[in-house]
Design a protein around this nucleic acid. Sequence first.
DNA 1: AATATATTTTAGACTAGTCTAAAAATATAT
DNA 2: ATATATTTTTAGACTAGTCTAAAATATATT
Lengths: 219, 219
Amino acid sequence: MHSFTEENYLKAIYKLIEQEGDVVTTNALAERMSTKAASVTDMLKKLSDKKLINYQKYQGVTLTTKGEKVALNIIRKHRLWEMFLVEKLDFKWDEVHDVAEQLEHINSDKLIEQIDKFLNFPKVDPHGDPIPTANGKLISSKSQVLSKFKKNDVSIMTGVVDHSAAFLQFLDKSGLVLGNEIKIKDIVEFDRSLQIIVNKKDTLFISNDVAKNILVIKK
Amino acid sequence: MHSFTEENYLKAIYKLIEQEGDVVTTNALAERMSTKAASVTDMLKKLSDKKLINYQKYQGVTLTTKGEKVALNIIRKHRLWEMFLVEKLDFKWDEVHDVAEQLEHINSDKLIEQIDKFLNFPKVDPHGDPIPTANGKLISSKSQVLSKFKKNDVSIMTGVVDHSAAFLQFLDKSGLVLGNEIKIKDIVEFDRSLQIIVNKKDTLFISNDVAKNILVIKK
DNA sequence: AATATATTTTAGACTAGTCTAAAAATATAT
DNA sequence: ATATATTTTTAGACTAGTCTAAAATATATT
């Protein structure tokens, strides 16, 4: 199997490609892993030798099919564990990340299949992120950020971009949870902040920064 | 916190003291950890510096109060996870060990308290071993090995000494599970093997070696 | 009590992963 | 087109944990 550290690098590469596009740079990876560029270079050589990434000096990295499979499997385990913590152990959605970061490295096919079954094969995790299948397929959601919508658009909240505890707690406090209907009542020209109506009842003002971190699907 | 490896050494020391008595030797520990005596010596110095063990060169080791607390906490987590796997995820009692060896190192107080609650605060694990409390108390069971009993004694099976998958599978096949009543119908002088009656129905012959690995409590 | 044997420790080396400082390559600006 | 700045890689060193081989200590035998 792959080491704890190798798995974390592969996951980080996957996520950076997912959000930043085509290739990942050494510096970007160093920042994400809270380490130094020199350490990243060392690890990239190792992952490249194992055929988990495509790497040419100075040219950045992408994942090989094999590397992507490993990354998606870690993400699958992470999201299933998060779901388990929230659904079965009464964790809040802002409390699950650190524990899931540990649990995702537990190595047992039977364990993760049974957890999946125990949860009745969920499609998304508590943050609305899709859970990759056992054979490494990821159904990408058609959700978009709320900030892209126009006045009077009505949508359903399906996820978040920022997963920090601070942001998630703010959403809880504001009554913004997955599944809620959000109608944009007004958009303030000056700062692009939004006035929204949640579930046809509560009127709320949110900044554009907040809106950029809320995922919705058009109704 | 303590490293994965440190935790495993402390657990091994605890178990060796529990079954072999007062002090643990370097060689015994090396064998248990599947490593070399030289490596053990290095680790003993480290654990001693951290005040987790009492160690004098050439004199063997015991756990300090602090070290015992760490060991018991690992054992607590191990046994709760085993219980979870069997009770909630349909694992067999011979399948849980390796996964629990990994899960026992997950570091989250909330997680283990919630697992405990989810299982309704079990007192023993699937092998009949007592689960230490959150504050490090271990209720030692009054069980004894079946081989110590006499002809016509009646007892209830409460646990096992050998936890290997092979032994547990043999017990399953023989219909010997926790809670069963075992009456000793006869003891063969020659090899101390036993003829037993399980649950007042099935007659079975077991070797003395097997009897030494079955824990029972007198009825 | 002296010697032989077994156990334990030390010394020095190895791997995985990390670091700093310096060198090399690439990108940007004039 | 060349100089400057930025990014990336290399070189060498460090820690945790491991190893082998040799030295030190303890135990057993006569």
